[in-house]
Write a protein that binds this DNA or RNA. Structure first.
Length: 225
DNA sequence: CACCAGGCAAGTA
DNA sequence: TACTTGCATGGT
């Protein structure tokens, strides 16, 4: 399980953090105004560029659909049309519907009640909702609920992989454990760290891109894609 | 024009 | 358990 983990991981992970933090500064992330918007965004951004998600979110906002009640009552087909710019729009309409149904059945439409649930119990229940996998569940827990859960996404995996810190097939759980077992249990730290990784990914570590100005370029293991 | 983007679930062997 | 495939739009 710890095949790729070395004794120095604690220092390495904090070193990466400080390097990125010095470069980007405080990001106080997730680009959304309310916990519900974080959740909607987390579902809409699945395998999709955030720019496309913004267009769909604007559509929802214009139609006053960014509330739990509106999402409950709007027809799935109507909802889907609003989601077209974000891709997979029929699928994502089903997923949003599945979430608000879950919220009604389990928590009487209350996000506060949902987040009052013990962390691991809630994570497990979120994973049981169709359309919510590990990354989406953890994004909801961290960015909507303020829970100390590290989010692993495609950028996290790619950046760690290109530096040789993990193998290409390392599991989500193992990557998450790498961070959570070697860093303080701190929601604000996890929030900022993941935000820094996403920024780094967007600017310097896309599938096709140079790494010249990458803030991690000075690391011993740094290499180009 | 081909490829990529802050995944997930269902199907197959 | 470990692959493979469908889902879909908009930017580069």
């Amino acid at each position: 399980m710890w095949q790729y983990v070395r004794e120095a991981d604690r220092d390495v992970l904090m070193g990466v953090y400080h390097r990125l933090n010095d470069f980007f500064g405080d990001l106080h992330w997730w680009p959304a105004q309310s916990p519900l918007e974080v959740i909607v965004g987390a579902i809409l951004t699945q395998n999709t560029a955030w720019q496309n998600v913004e267009q769909a979110m604007d559509n929802l906002s214009s139609s006053k659909l960014l509330s739990i009640r509106a999402l409950q009552y709007v027809g799935e087909e109507v909802l889907a049309q609003h989601l077209r710019p974000s891709g997979y729009y029929r699928l994502k309409a089903k997923r949003l519907k599945a979430f608000v149904r879950f919220l009604r059945v389990e928590y009487e439409d209350s996000l506060d009640k949902m987040f009052a649930e013990p962390l691991l119990v809630l994570r497990s229940k979120l994973l049981s909702v169709s359309g919510i996998g590990e990354e989406t569940a953890d994004s909801i827990l961290l960015y909507a609920g303020g829970k100390p859960v590290f989010v692993v996404d495609a950028y996290t995996r790619r950046i760690l992989s290109r530096h040789g810190f993990i193998g290409d097939k390392t599991s989500y759980t193992d990557i998450q454990a790498l961070f959570m077992n070697n860093l303080p249990v701190d929601a604000m730290l996890y929030n900022q760290y993941h935000a820094l990784l996403v920024n780094t990914g967007k600017h310097f570590c896309r599938k096709v891109s140079r790494c010249d100005p990458c803030p991690l370029a000075a690391l011993p293991e740094h290499h180009k894609p």
